[in-house]
Design a protein around this nucleic acid. Structure first.
Ligand SMILES: [Zn+2]
Ligand SMILES: [Zn+2]
Ligand SMILES: [Zn+2]
Ligand SMILES: [Zn+2]
Lengths: 129, 129
DNA sequence: GGACAAAATGAAAACCGTTGTCAAAATCGG
DNA sequence: CCGATTTTGACAACGGTTTTCATTTTGTCC
């Protein structure tokens, strides 16, 4: 039914790192797709609401999206240069967050965890410079 | 020298949780201070650049600031209802982030970690209805 | 104290990602 | 088909932040 939503989802599935709405919109337009920016935003919102994509905020406040392979709770190791992203599990972190919350009398504990670095290919590229 | 910067810093020092620029501006104005919003933004930027305050982004992309007691690397346990914030250390998380990065061939590893929950007083307030 | 240069200030405009509006277009149901 | 419902997208509006730039304050040297 919702062909547009699927189109947006497909773009994300074929991307490695996190992508912004405007980014996705630009790619779709340059691919000849007839779609409006509003619709891209709406599709991303719906996908995020249904847990189909992960969302996070860049340092400058922009929302970026990714269709992750894992549907389970996980975190991300992101190359700050090329955006390459690896999904990682962190049972120790999950336990730590829960414990630290409890110890301080907090309930309904959630957390956000992201790891950044420079991936090996980017290091190589920099060396070749 | 920079009287305004200190004034902004003071507001943060007397606040418990994270505060937004507009929030701080409103408080200063209602306290009779003669200051512009631009200056508040500039002061916060400078304080953040000098590592005097911690910054993070809310879910809706707003930047919020806090003058933390600890100058060392630490994370935050934040009440999502009243904003009360506890500074927490997580040596296990530091190690985990470093390891997971290394294992995937990443270097210059950094991370962001925040824990959210409902603090005990908020739970009590909710119960009292 | 002046005089002048450099830095700080703030009102208003510009910026930019995002959301709301609403009429047109596509889709559905009968 | 035909009316009802949903989806779409151009455009305007919004809100937080940054830029601009003329004015004010501060620092320095005499
Ligand atoms: Zn993910
Ligand atoms: Zn987790
Ligand atoms: Zn802190
Ligand atoms: Zn840490």
């Amino acid at each position: 039914m919702s062909n547009r939503r699927d189109a947006v989802h497909d773009i994300l599935r074929h991307s490695d790192g996190f992508r912004s709405a405007q980014d996705i919109y630009a790619e779709m337009r340059s691919d000849g797709a007839k779609i409006g920016l509003t619709t891209v935003y709406r599709a991303l919102q719906a996908l995020a609401d249904n847990g189909k994509v992960d969302v996070l905020r860049t340092d400058d406040g922009e929302a970026v999206y990714r269709a992750c392979a894992s549907g389970d709770h996980h975190h991300h190791l992101v190359c700050r240069r090329c955006g390459r992203t690896v999904e990682v599990a962190g049972p120790a972190v999950e336990r730590w967050a829960e414990t630290i919350g409890r110890e301080n009398g907090f309930s309904d504990i959630t957390h956000t965890v992201e790891v950044f670095g420079t991936c090996s290919s980017c290091v190589a590229a920099l060396r070749a410079g």
